[in-house]
Amino acid sequence: MRDMIKMVVVLTVLSSLSGGLLAAIKNSTEDRIEGQVLQFVQGPAILKIMEGASNDPISDRFTITAGDEQTNFFVGKYNGTPKVVAFETNAAGYGGPVGIMVAFDVETNKIKSIGVTTHNETPGVGSLVEKDENFKKQFVGLDVTFEPKVNKDGGSIIAMSGATVTSRAVTAAVRKAQVFYEQHQSEIKDKAKSFTG
């Protein structure tokens, strides 16, 4: 009986100490972790597509809720006025989802730039999407109503050689972003304007 009590006491004390320690560490690192996620997951793509912005697009952000999903929007200011918004969408590629950050010009409703956030494509083939600027440039300037398609599907986007699936995924992700932007246009523009000044 004494053994039994000892076992229970030891296990309880150990578990509660562990729980307490972890809760304390969790609380003290929470904010830092959130910042790191934004900085390293979406950050590089955001900074690249908003080159020349006068603010820090990662800290100037707002969210829009559609259904159950919350989307983060990042605002880029040029000459003091919020001119560009960027947000992330994804579509299935060869090795899982390909995440694309798409930036829209809120004045002209045209795509300003796109960047890759996450992917798991074949090294040396689909993974080249990270660096292949010529491929990504093809999306720049497309109007929000224009549906891009890769050349194999009868469209104008020239797919990266040997990586049609990845190219299709990027195209599909951009299309998703266009549709979302069109549907929530007024809300996006209103919220972006609030960053004026």
């Binding site: 320690l21 972890l22 560490i25 690192t29 830092r32 972790i33 790191q36 996620v37």
Partner: peptide, 15 residues
């Protein structure tokens, strides 16, 4: 417990 400590620390400092 220690694994979770490492996990949280790495998330916070070496993401």
């Amino acid at each position: 417990t220690f694994v979770t400590v490492v996990e949280l620390m790495m998330q916070a400092y070496t993401y």
